[in-house]
Simulated scan of single mutants.
Amino acid sequence: MPEPVTPVTVEAQLTPGAPEGGGAEGPARSLWSDAWRSLRRNPVFIVSALIILFLVIVAIWPQLLASGDPNDCDLAHGQDTSSSGHPFGYDAQGCDVYTRTVYGARASITVGVCATAGVALLGGILGALAGFFGRWADALLSRVADIFFGIPVILGGLVLLSVVTSTTVWPVVGFIVLLGWPQISRIARGSVITVKENDYVHAARTLGASNSRILLRHILPNAIAPVIVVATIALGTYIALEATLSFLGVGLKPPAVSWGIDISNAAPYIRNAPHMLLYPAGALALTVLAFIMLGDAVRDALDPKLR
């Protein structure tokens, strides 16, 4: 007669990637180890990660590349082109474009990282709860998400941020989180609904596992990959959104240093002094591109269908 299966043996088989045959062949590689192995061989990931690492270092320690004050301006040099010690020239107010471009990375990276973390946390939690419990909780959260989906982002920013007088990044971060969570919520909801129908989830429920244990141990580790992919790509989008709102005058406000503010100030002088627009716009484009490339690489690594 076959030996009875003990609860310990069943529990060990609940999570995908658990060792088979009592560990005689060693533990099977998990989704995350396979993804990391794929990322290390992807040149797109390596290039984008190096660019992002450089930008993060610049955002934390801008003094490493620029020793001047970004708000130290001299009207006598207004719109001057590059000169010794000032490779990017001056803007209309006589501020050093190079220094302002370097210091502008701090605001953009801070907004992108904090907004993405807030959106992923809020949207992921609400979406996971809606997908796991279903019924009235799913219906309620889905209708609330539909309401926020119906608010145009730019129009909402013009209305909500126009009454804010703060010069910090937090009003912009809060606005992005407020309107950005429904997208992550829907992705998390769909992923949880798919995962919770797997056999190992039903087995855990049969063994008497609580809802919190099922959700945290068996569902979320296998449903979080799409959320990570979308959040990584959205990070670059949020940086571009901050620059757009600052360009329109409702995002970051002087004396804050932002690429969006510098692009807005340089727009009227694009014919006579294109260097004022070229460098902050180029830094913004490179940053957004790096995060989008990183998101694409992460998506390819985490999606088994693309391997």
Rank of each mutant, 00 (worst) to 15 (best):
G89C: 08
P70A: 03
P70K: 01
D96I: 03
S82G: 11
D72V: 09
R106S: 11
A66V: 09
P70N: 00
A24Y: 15
G104T: 00
L39Y: 11
N71D: 13
A49D: 14
W36Y: 13
S67P: 04
G89V: 04
C73E: 03
L65R: 07
R40I: 06
A76L: 15
A49E: 14
Y98T: 07
V102C: 15
R29C: 08
P70S: 02
I46T: 15
D91I: 03
P87R: 00
L64W: 05
G21F: 02
S30H: 00
W32I: 01
S67I: 02
V102R: 15
R106W: 12
R41F: 03
D74V: 08
R37C: 08
D96W: 04
Y90H: 05
C95M: 02
V56D: 02
D96T: 01
S33F: 02
I109R: 06
R100E: 04
S30M: 00
G22L: 11
R29H: 09
V58W: 07
I60C: 07
I57H: 06
P70G: 00
C73I: 04
I52L: 07
G23V: 06
G104Y: 03
D34N: 10
L53Q: 09
F45S: 01
P62R: 06
D91V: 03
L55D: 11
L50T: 07
A105H: 14
A107N: 14
A92R: 07
V47P: 15
G112V: 10
G21A: 06
Y103L: 07
W32V: 06
A66E: 08
W61F: 11
G68S: 15
